[in-house]
């Protein structure tokens, strides 16, 4: 669907019509998880599900699990480390990738 956003359907498509259009979509520059040099790891025992990391995450790659703790979407997480720094319980650890 979003792939076709640049091509808008016309009532009378008599000419080639291309406009500079997009729609919000995941991965507008690809899988940004590959940018990571450091990886945030949630220490589940310490996580209270307070959502502070969720609130601050610049990338929207932290989600709530069914058990109320957080999980990280590593496909897109850029590894900035904001979550580890704001966590009041030191429940997120930054570990080197690779």
């Amino acid at each position: 669907m979003e792939e076709r956003a640049t091509k808008v359907l016309l009532e009378e498509p008599q000419t080639l019509f291309l406009a500079p259009l997009s729609r919000p979509a995941l991965g507008s520059v690809g899988k940004t998880g590959t940018w990571r040099t450091m990886r945030p790891v949630v220490i589940l025992d310490k996580c209270t599900g307070c959502k502070i990391c969720w609130l601050y995450c610049p990338e929207n790659t932290i989600f709530m699990r069914d058990d109320g703790k957080v999980r990280i979407d590593y496909e897109y997480c850029k590894g900035c480390g904001v979550c580890a720094n704001v966590c009041p319980f030191d429940a997120i650890e930054m570990v080197p990738e690779g």
């Binding site: 956003a5 080639l16 291309l18 406009a19 500079p20 259009l21 997009s22 729609r23 919000p24």
Partner: peptide
């Protein structure tokens, strides 16, 4: 009549970076 409207209903974005070849085709269009 207009080709698109920027509004919450359409959720469209006008003008962010496009691949150069697509931009070229837009000039052709």
């Amino acid at each position: 009549r207009q080709p698109y409207v920027i509004s919450p209903e359409t959720n469209l974005v006008m003008g962010n970076i496009a691949p150069d070849d697509i931009h070229f085709l837009m000039r052709y269009s």
